[in-house]
Design a protein around this nucleic acid. Structure first.
Lengths: 219, 219
DNA sequence: AAAAAATTTAACAAAATTTTCACATGATTA
DNA sequence: TAATCATGTGAAAATTTTGTTAAATTTTTT
């Protein structure tokens, strides 16, 4: 589980990181909304802890922009209690809320609760791209996209390893199984077919020359 | 348990969602009757919390239309207390009723009560497809469809897991029991027979290649 | 116990998927 | 720029999976 901590105060980030890492979460840091969005685009974040009052790009703007990118559980932090209604009212997708100062213990409890609620990742959603893990189905623009079993498995593996370049060998081992003794290039053919099926999102599968492929949803 | 919250006020939906999710219900939202009907057609909703006064399609119309689609427990919300008799009088299948403003705590109590009362789902109704769980019978176009015991159990399990792809192994374990040591392909034969019996709805049983089968009623 | 119904198995047909391979295309380097 | 190397692509061949039928077996009913 990877958690992104967004706060302009270095000390706060440090303390939160400390606690999260003690509970063996992975931690990324960002000191403003700008950086946060960058990070979310590049890494697979499972939860964001977001300070509302920040310079540059504040919490509200960050949440608004986030909505155009992907869905992500968020715990908001703020110094003023009155913000609460505003956060809920604006429908900015905040899962929980804490006012500063808060006890780290309390934060940890919220983190666990939110992650528990969102645990069963049933969907991978980016824009109008919806992969339904339970239903083994992919929809793009509301339309069902027919994938063969290998294409589906390949896509799932890519998504589980977003942003990471995967060698052909690794793909064969993980998707085909260690006991596959066929040709490397088999993968290329499947990549081709998968790309065709992804339609307008075909270039989310990126060729890493001399190495393999990687999956990345945005630019 | 998935609960659909229908209200035109964003803030109300948010607050209700908050409370429901804290009690670990799944929540869907709709801001008018139109959307609500759409949602009910597409997802497996177990309970609807419905505001009576809404623009576009109000609560009454929504309830009327709902009756043609399927049975579903409903808790109604309204600002005026006098509505209560009307709601019951029109026999629109409202299970409980709350006047605004109400305390979330009160709502939660009603939700739990209604779900407890309706726990034993008696019918699964889609168009003229009517599965009667109590009577162990299936009717299509008013005609009784004769199912063998295995076919019936298989169908029930599919319906309880609508939209979810089920492996042959899982089906064997759940429908046949953990102590069945026969052939995988037994399922295929039963699927064939079940499909034949479903007649014009035969393709609600969808083949998930390389994996198993899933059940999905509408398009 | 016989008959009927339901379930399971096995075999084959049909359909879909996977793999291979040859060649095209595009990138990189000398 | 030519040579080289890695990847893209199309189509046939090989394989796998599913659909279907019919016969064998088990269970239930009469």
């Amino acid at each position: 589980m990877k958690i992104l901590v967004v706060d302009d105060e270095e000390l706060i980030r440090k303390v939160i990181r400390e606690y999260l890492e003690n509970s063996s979460y992975e931690v990324e840091e960002a000191c403003d909304g700008e950086e946060a969005i960058e990070c979310i685009k590049k890494k697979n974040i499972d939860l964001m802890i977001l300070d509302i009052m920040m310079p540059k790009k504040d919490g509200y703007e960050t949440l608004k922009e986030l909505k155009n990118i992907r869905s992500l559980p968020v715990i908001a932090l703020s110094a003023r209690k009155e913000e609460y209604d505003k956060l809920l009212g604006f429908e900015l997708g905040v899962d929980d809320y804490l006012t500063k100062p808060f006890s780290p213990r309390e934060l940890m409890a919220r983190v666990k609760a939110v992650l528990r609620r969102n645990k069963e990742m049933n969907y991978y959603i980016r824009k109008d791209f919806v992969l339904d893990f339970k239903g083994h189905s992919l929809k793009i623009e509301e339309e069902e996209v027919k994938l063969t079993p290998k294409e589906y498995e390949l896509l799932v593996y890519f998504i589980q390893n977003e942003h990471i370049a995967l060698s052909r060998e690794q793909l064969l081992n993980k998707v085909w199984g260690y006991d596959f003794y066929g040709d490397d290039r088999t993968i290329d053919t499947h990549i081709k077919m998968l790309r065709n099926n992804l339609g307008k999102y075909r270039d989310w599968i990126i060729t890493v020359r001399g190495m393999g492929y990687k999956f990345e949803s945005e630019e």
